[in-house]
Design a protein around this nucleic acid. Structure first.
Lengths: 296, 296
DNA sequence: TAAAATGATCAGTAAAACTTACCACCTTAA
DNA sequence: TTAAGGTGGTAAGTTTTACTGATCATTTTA
């Protein structure tokens, strides 16, 4: 019923009009002139009506041709628009990535990383939101974001995790605290002091230092409240180094030497679901940037 | 720069989604399954990004595929719409004809003809306007209408005329007029009577009867005024038979036997300019209908 | 665990699109 | 007038593209 009209002959028709003749169109399209003639004739046969007047020496449209040409123009323009947009996205010149990151990464690492990414891929829109590790995990799993930066949580069938960097656990205390001058600590050195637990305290679980948690009576989830407590000298806490905000002048970070604890930070994505071109660019960019940092 | 993305592979992609798989799509499209696979792979290569997830057994879209598919849908739908409309016009299922006709034809012949045409081509819009022969000529020449029905005026390079029917010239008089009972007349029989000239009187020119015009002092262009004059018994006039309105009970039409005068009615169109499909249908319809009438 | 799906691959083939060479026609300029 | 330079159309042959049929590797279903 519908003879499948191809776009190329329509392009030829438009070129004939724009260039003002079959020969001129052929030159413009880098085709031979007979190719144009034959394609146009074929198109006319499919339509069942001529598009060009046959008699005169010049290329003039029939009334039917006059009706067709504007629609051909629109259709070809539509086609080109779709192609251009699709290619721009495929080539990562446009697009959008939604990322989630654990607060420490989001605030300490991402600003510099995203600045570099934006420079490299000026057309890509980025959305970054932070959340604790379970939330990041969940957002990736539910497809709310394509990429997550978090410490490895539960290994999951539906998620794939690529390690990026290690983040050492240490103790945070005020500069006048007895431990403040130490270079490294054994976990037992903490026993005499008040330990404030926080969201990252679970990183101690499964290690000898877990014993400390059982004696702790204070839990603060909010980082601002936590630093306020520490600055007030109420006690000490453990944090990954990245989560320690160096701008607090009176607080010190002392690495925990025994046991040596670290959290593994990495890129989380859904397995079995490939990334959008933009997210793919982000994925490889982060791997390259942070993998490099790791080597130093 | 722009790899020319063809519509067929886009159709394949859509069919894969609709049918739920490569095999099902192949069946639906009456193609072999490898044809689908290869076309999709080619499309993906042109875009530079896969559209379908490769791992799993099922046909699932990548995020990039999800972005592309709605645009492919729109584009394909646009293409089909243009094709369908163009074919409908080419096949004379839609379209528009503008016609002009001399008043006698417009009022006496066209109603029945157009009724038949409308029945045969229900989708075609028709515009009919009347005017005297020079005006019809002019409208065709200026492209205001595609077809004109008129008596041959000046043979013109830019116009082509196809004869349709002969229209005999006769005399119109009231039923109580001395000539009213005649079957046919010689022009000299009119000499004693008042001759009212009208727009068609020029048809007498170039014949012996032209002498009558020189003695006529009354010219009425409007047909309603003319019949009123005739019914009032003011005089007689000459008219082509078609222009004589038979519903005037007191008026008689007597053919002019010597000289036998007739106007040649025909279809006028621009030469060198082909007709729109709808006008072409009208052209051939009129030729067939009136040519047939002529034979009877 | 066999059977029946899925999609991918490869060689061969049929169809399309294109090129080269040539023709017929019209217009323009010497 | 003729010849040159333009128009587009035609025919044979070649390249490119699109497709089929047979076959394979996997995964899913029974």
């Amino acid at each position: 019923m519908l003879p499948d009209l191809k776009l190329a002959p329509m392009r030829y028709v438009l070129a004939i009009l724009d260039a003002g003749g079959f020969h001129a169109a052929a030159r413009q399209l880098h085709r031979s002139q007979p190719a144009i003639s034959m394609a146009v004739r074929d198109l006319e046969e499919r339509l069942g009506q001529p598009l060009f007047e046959k008699g005169g020496g010049k290329a003039l449209l029939t009334p039917f041709g006059h009706w067709c040409v504007p629609r051909f123009r629109e259709l070809v323009a539509h086609h080109d628009r779709v192609c251009r947009d699709a290619l721009a996205i495929a080539r990562q010149q446009h697009g959008r990535v939604d990322i989630a990151a654990v607060p420490s990464v989001a605030s300490r690492l991402m600003p510099a990383l995203l600045a570099g990414f934006l420079q490299r891929y000026p057309g890509i829109d980025i959305s970054l939101q932070d959340g604790h590790s379970e939330r990041v995990n969940d957002m990736v799993l539910k497809g709310e974001v394509e990429l997550g930066i978090t410490s490895l949580w539960l290994p999951d069938e539906a998620l794939s995790f690529e390690a990026l960097l290690h983040d050492d656990i240490g103790v945070i205390c005020r500069d006048d605290h007895p431990l403040a001058q130490q270079k490294a600590l054994h976990w037992r050195a903490l026993k005499p002091y008040t330990l404030i637990r926080n969201g990252t305290s679970r990183l101690l679980e499964g290690s000898p230092a877990a014993e400390l948690l059982t004696h702790s009576t204070l839990y603060i989830s909010n980082m601002i409240s936590l630093t306020a407590m520490l600055e007030a000298g109420i006690g000490v806490t453990t944090l990954p180094r990245l989560a320690f905000q160096e701008e607090h002048k009176r607080l010190r970070f002392i690495p925990l030497a025994t046991p040596h604890l670290e959290r593994q930070m990495g890129l989380l994505r859904r397995s079995g679901q490939s990334l959008s071109p933009a997210a793919d660019a982000m994925y490889h960019y982060l791997m390259a940037q942070l993998g490099e940092d790791e080597k130093r």
